[in-house]
Amino acid sequence: MHDQPILKVRNLNRQFGAGCRHCINAEDRSLTKNYCESCGTVYACQNISLDLFAGEILGVVGESGSGKSSLMKCLYFDSEVTSGEVLLDDEELRGQNLFEVSSQKKRYIRNYKYGMVYQNPVHGLKMNFSSIGNIAEKLIAAGNRNVGEMEKIGKRLLETVHIPIFRMKEEPRHFSGGMQQRVQIAKALSNNPPVLFLDEVTTGLDLSVQADVLDLIKTIQREFGISMVVVSHDLAVIRMLADRTIVMLNGEIVEQGLTDQILEDPSHKYTQQLVYSLL
């Protein structure tokens, strides 16, 4: 791992609602969990700062409603931030707050610099396209026009994620959940992005299929050296994948550190509850 973060997030805030005198001031907010009872504003992400280093898997863990998926949506530009800064260590984009660039540039970043694997494959795949067609779609979005080259890349990626080549013309809607996730991973990898986001990718899969998908993610990380942010409510997933972990509760980071350290000696009461519920 390098000393310089590849992705740097500072003071990210995402709120739903305008806020009122009881909650607008971050210092003396009066909230129930992350909800203002006076005006109904929800503070999904509160002052989130994190670093992702080259070749690292960063885990983000927390219960449902903790803000981890909101964080992911903001980072991948699926959702607008209220305020904050994100910097990518990239020659073309260095020094620019990516939350403030044009929508055209955001599209460019999603096509070239980021990959995303959603919890529900329906959000990441076109279910009525062939599997290889889904990969080609991402390549075309990034400006590739060479059909032969796209087919070669598509086949290689499907092999990488263990989808049989004879099924490459099949539509993902005919596949099992685990296979759909693997096609999604192949599509996300198609432009060799330096950063990959994975949002609850094993939720709803059978345990044996979960193990296969997690194993695949580990292998890809080793082979491609991609930096990953992995969101999960499941500490067993985080334990297997993440080098470092951030624990979120009510839209805030309550603890962060090396995964082993957090799981063996959690300091925050909420993390302790999470860890002990695993034992």
Rank of each mutant, 00 (worst) to 15 (best):
H2K: 09
D3S: 11
K8N: 07
N11C: 03
N13C: 10
N13P: 10
Q15T: 07
Q15E: 05
H22T: 15
C23K: 02
C23H: 01
I24Y: 08
A26W: 12
A26L: 12
N34W: 12
C36L: 02
C39T: 06
Y43L: 03
S49L: 10
F53K: 08
A54H: 04
G55A: 09
E56Y: 11
I57C: 13
I57D: 06
G59M: 08
V60Q: 07
V61N: 00
S64Y: 09
G65R: 09
S66Y: 11
C74G: 07
L75K: 11
Y76T: 15
F77W: 04
F77Q: 01
E80S: 06
T82N: 01
V86N: 00
V86C: 09
D89R: 12
D90H: 15
E91D: 14
E92S: 11
G95P: 12
K106M: 10
Y108C: 10
K113M: 12
Y114W: 14
Y114F: 15
Y118Q: 01
Q119A: 00
N120F: 13
P121E: 09
V122D: 10
G124Y: 09
L125Q: 03
M127R: 01
S130E: 05
S130G: 01
N134S: 07
N134Q: 08
N134T: 01
I135F: 08
A136D: 02
K138S: 15
I140T: 09
I140D: 01
R145N: 15
M150Q: 02
I153K: 12
I153M: 03
K155I: 12
P164A: 14
F166E: 15
M168Y: 11
E170G: 12
E171Q: 15
P172Y: 12
F175D: 04
M179I: 14
Q180K: 15
R182K: 07
V183C: 13
Q184R: 03
A186E: 06
L189G: 14
N192W: 00
P194A: 14
F197T: 11
F197L: 04
T202G: 00
L205H: 10
V209Q: 03
A211K: 07
D215E: 00
T219V: 09
I220W: 08
Q221E: 03
R222S: 13
F224L: 15
S227W: 06
S232E: 10
S232K: 06
H233F: 08
I238Y: 13
R239G: 04
L241I: 00
A242V: 08
D243R: 06
T245H: 06
T245F: 00
G251Q: 09
V254L: 11
E255M: 04
G257N: 00
L258I: 13
I262F: 08
L263P: 11
E264A: 05
T271Q: 03
T271E: 08
T271S: 13
L274V: 07
V275W: 03
L279T: 09
